[in-house]
């Protein structure tokens, strides 16, 4: 499998505070990779650094092309869709407008219309609410909307920041099932950051464990899930 995303010696800073201390990892095309770690380990920062939303140094290559020093909006045009923490819903706009915004960089109008229908098939609840103001959706529905909005880009890589946050366990299962399906059927590579390690490891095929801004462990998701020592010392279950 070819490498889609390659991150080398990534260091990121919030003002004077360094949040990432030379982080390196890679993600192969078509894989579903998860980044695990405790609160404050640097998971969100890693995703934000990939999209240049935080000051960082080091090498980030997407499909062989360097992403450093590009603006967030131009990185998106490479086919990287980022579902931020807090979902980033356009709360004052309708559900359908949110989906249209996901495809705002695309020119194929017919494709956009059919993709909106596809999203409604994936997430029927969005169809029911398509004229509703997105801010009135429940947390779970907004997370579905955020994923659907990201997919409207027809991304090659989707970055998901704690999709399970604040959602009921049943909703999370449902969401993860859909993510797996998208990964398999639509061939979208996914990098998902999670605190819910157990669930993420079930879903993913590759996993990295990150601690205070460094990768401390990497490997096959099943191996990590089966290794009791790792689970106990790093993942806490």
């Amino acid at each position: 499998m070819t490498t889609l995303l390659n991150v080398k010696d990534l260091r990121a800073y919030y003002g004077q505070v360094q949040a990432l201390h030379g982080l390196s990892f890679s993600l192969s095309e078509g894989s579903l990779t998860t980044l695990l770690g405790a609160n404050g380990a640097g998971k969100t920062t890693t995703l934000r650094a990939i999209c240049n939303m935080v000051r960082s140094t080091g090498g980030i290559e997407f499909d062989g092309k360097p992403l450093n020093h590009r603006s967030t909006e131009s990185i998106v045009r490479f086919g990287i869709a980022h579902v931020p923490q807090g979902r980033g819903t356009f709360t004052t706009m309708t559900v359908e407008e949110n989906l249209q915004l996901g495809a705002i960089t695309r020119k194929d109008n017919a494709g956009i219309i059919s993709d909106i229908e596809r999203m409604y098939a994936h997430f029927p609840v969005l169809k029911q609410r398509h004229t509703q103001q997105a801010g009135t959706l429940s947390g779970g529905e907004q997370q579905m909307l955020a994923v659907a909005r990201a997919l409207m880009l027809r991304p090659r890589l989707m970055l998901l920041d704690e999709p399970s946050f604040g959602l009921a366990p049943l909703v999370v299962r449902d969401l993860f099932r859909i993510l797996g399906k998208i990964n398999r059927e639509d061939k979208v590579s996914i990098l998902v950051v999670e605190q819910n390690a157990q669930l993420a490891l079930e879903l993913a095929d590759h996993a990295y464990v990150i601690e205070t801004g460094r990768i401390v462990m990497s490997g096959n998701a099943k191996d990590i899930a089966n290794n009791e020592e790792i689970r106990k010392s790093y993942l806490g279950y």
Partner: peptide
């Protein structure tokens, strides 16, 4: 950096 913030106020 997973700040426990559900909604960005």
């Amino acid at each position: 950096m997973s700040a426990a913030e559900d909604v960005v106020t």
